[in-house]
Amino acid sequence: MLLSELAHVRSGDKGDTSQISVIAYRLGDYPLLAEWVTADRVAAHFPGLACRRVSRFELPGIGALNFVLEGAMPGGVTRTLALDAHGKTLAMQLLSLDIPDDLP
């Protein structure tokens, strides 16, 4: 299944860093998200980004993960040549992340 079936997302930016929240529709799906949607898998999902580092923060109380993609927007919002200078579209692109159906 795709991440879009389990979670909703939102992108924000700070300097050259993009931030993506991944929020379980149902709290019961949070452990599965926490197990599969790792910082490494998020980094691998975006081969077109040259991140210095991807880190993950966990918020089990609200069933959410927060990803911080440092260096996702080279030069930052103000200098980048990218069409989507703020990385606003990145979160929705993460929704195509594939999650195996047979995870315990």
Binding site: H8, V9, R10, G12, Q19, I23, L59
Partner: peptide, 16 residues
């Protein structure tokens, strides 16, 4: 609750 969760984390790096 869903709109509030999205905005809670918007442009937040370390939530702590």
């Amino acid at each position: 609750v869903a709109t509030c969760k999205e905005q809670l984390l918007y442009e937040v790096l370390d939530p702590r």
